[in-house]
Design a protein around this nucleic acid. Structure first.
Lengths: 368, 368
DNA sequence: GTGAAAGCGCTAACAA
DNA sequence: TTGTTAGCGCTTTCAC
């Protein structure tokens, strides 16, 4: 990982020694000299602070522009004890789910003039620790940890730095940690409710591995929605498996192999599964949505739109999740305190796999 | 975008004023005091510089550890005039292609103890400029610009800062810019060569919109490979369209509608297209790879592996592209000079859509 | 072998 | 209204 032994604490060079050519840098001194005023006057002029003659202010600003002066954030941060910088630690190699979260986060923080350090820990604790260490030395104002995991992750080791940490799409085992998650249960309810409202009664659920908390939560939502309409989960209609199209196809074979009454709707734990399901149904001559309605999960455009027919799917609003993470992190940095789990509502995106007439977007699930 | 009017150059607060609680910070002074030596001695001890008694060194290090001292990179950077930080500007919302590039880049730079600022310009020039400005103020040591575009992009405006800039998966219109791209032409040759070697003679090419340089390059490679075996591009066998499964399916219909001899192989411009193609062929009762061999492009696992049969596909090695970008950027920062376009070889990943026996990975295309 | 002092670029309290 | 000064945390001569 790191090159060469560096067992010392080292305040020294952060990397190899480069014989880099010194980049020019226009300092506030240069501006002061050029406009024959003092450094502090320049500072006041550029920051619109203190009281200065308008004339002086203008002159200084003009000269600063002319010289191409760009204040050094490093120096500023050093002085203010705040870097306007945060770290984002991802653990699934910037996977499909992290991306929209990163986008939302970055968008919100950029608007607040905060820069984001991007760190990929790739689920390697050692690498993660390295990143944390580096972020702490860079004096970030906060850290966001992301990436879906099967189980809860251990909390970040930030020593006694008191640095705000926020987990998004990931749950820490520390009850004092603050975690932002999608409302999987509510999302499932939304999807199943939709199916039932369309008159479907035999709703099957094909989903991923049960070791995922999300799988368990979604099943709860599925059952709740059924129960609300005095329906039970039909026996043999709950099929956990893996997150793949192949499993979707196989599960369909299982469902239709038996002699019992076949489902008239299938709620799938992912769009990949849903796609496998529609393919398998089509190949059996079963018409979607006429005979069987399908609802997917993730609203992953590539899958949902390429499906035949295109999939109605539950959207976890990951980008919004990212934005919310940005907002909360800023609050945390400002000294507010949050803890526990907060869930962001899902929405249902209607396409053609359910035969719904209305194109009204589903109302949000009640996030806590 | 930014909140409130901030037309001044502003060296001041980078964002809203927060009433943030001051985070504790153990300074080198604290360590000095605690070990009753001077600050400079501590510095020497921790950086293994100067000459010190081993005893002093050990004592200081021990105390520093005990106090949880973490050197402030900001202060260091300020002093050394180098921040060990670079900016990554993406323009396609961290899309599917940017991700592996980011990963490779981040991986390499992290190993060199350089941190990466993540910026999403979302193809908005104004937003991009904002990011550049912010990066310059943060005194990054270099900038990487990424994201596929149809045409060349204008070069980044970095004023006279002389900051190293590198374009990856993106070509700048400035001939002095340094750009890293995949070898689209070579990749196509690799795929088509594979088909021809398997005895296929009627090779069609279904691909994306011609306004993409990559589409044109890949067609060139396709023709070159054919020409090498004294084959021509069969008339009507080149079908540019869009990057979708739907187009793949439609193109198959076109190919087999006419009365002419049908293709015995199809080289596709993307895995999405290839997937549509295999679906359409299967539905026509045409067996892949027995009757028709398929090669895709991108080696996008989700598509390639879910296809029936799984797709043999050209891999652009985007992660390696990212790593190479990291290496080159470091060289640029160190003062080396590169310009023009450099292409990274593609490789062929064999699955089952061609009927090849051998599982030997294709040899790399000759990158320039 | 160790310490004092200057300085990196900037801000802010205090004098003038 | 402007300038002087001290200091943010660290490194690096240069004396001792």
């Amino acid at each position: 990982m790191a090159e060469g032994p560096r067992d010392d604490i080292g305040t020294g060079a952060a990397g190899e020694e480069w014989s880099r050519p010194a980049r020019t840098q226009v300092t506030i001194r240069d501006v002061a000299r050029a406009s024959s005023v003092s450094v502090s006057t320049v500072s006041k002029a550029l920051n619109n602070s203190g009281s200065l003659r308008q004339q002086t202010r203008d002159k200084v600003i003009a000269i600063a522009k002319e010289l191409g002066f760009r204040p050094n954030d490093l120096a500023q941060s050093l002085h203010r004890g705040q870097s306007f910088t945060i770290g984002l630690i991802s653990n699934d190699n910037f996977g499909r789910f992290s991306i929209p979260i990163m986008e939302g986060l970055e968008e919100h923080l950029t608007n607040s003039r905060i820069s984001v350090f991007m760190c990929n820990a790739a689920d390697d604790p050692e690498r993660e620790e390295l990143h944390v260490e580096s972020l702490l030395k860079k004096r970030v104002d906060g850290i966001v940890v992301t990436a879906r995991r099967v189980d809860r992750r251990r909390a970040l080791e930030i020593g006694s730095s008191g640095l705000p940490v926020l987990y998004v799409f990931s749950q820490a085992d520390d009850p004092n940690a603050f975690c932002l998650l999608p409302d999987d249960e509510g999302g499932a309810e939304l999807g199943v409710e939709h199916l039932v409202r369309l008159g479907r009664r035999q709703v099957a659920h094909i989903t991923g591995p049960e070791r995922f908390q999300a799988v368990r939560d979604r099943r709860d939502g599925y059952r709740k929605a059924l129960a609300r309409h005095a329906l039970d989960e039909p026996e043999g209609f709950y099929l956990p498996g893996v997150w793949s199209e192949g499993w979707g196809r196989e599960a369909v074979a299982q469902l239709f192999r038996s002699s019992r009454e076949p489902p008239d709707a299938i709620f799938c734990g992912s769009d990949q599964i849903a796609r496998g399901v529609t393919d398998a149904l089509r190949e059996r001559g079963i018409v979607v949505p006429k005979q069987v309605s399908i609802v997917g999960f993730d609203n992953w455009d590539v899958m949902a739109e390429a499906s035949r027919p295109p999939l109605t799917s539950v959207d976890m609003n990951l980008k919004e999740l990212g934005r919310e993470a940005g907002r909360r992190l800023i609050d945390l940095i400002a000294g507010k305190e949050f803890r526990g789990v907060r869930r962001i509502p899902c929405t249902l995106v209607i396409r053609e796999s359910c035969g719904a007439r209305s194109r009204a977007a589903g109302k949000p699930t009640g996030g806590i």
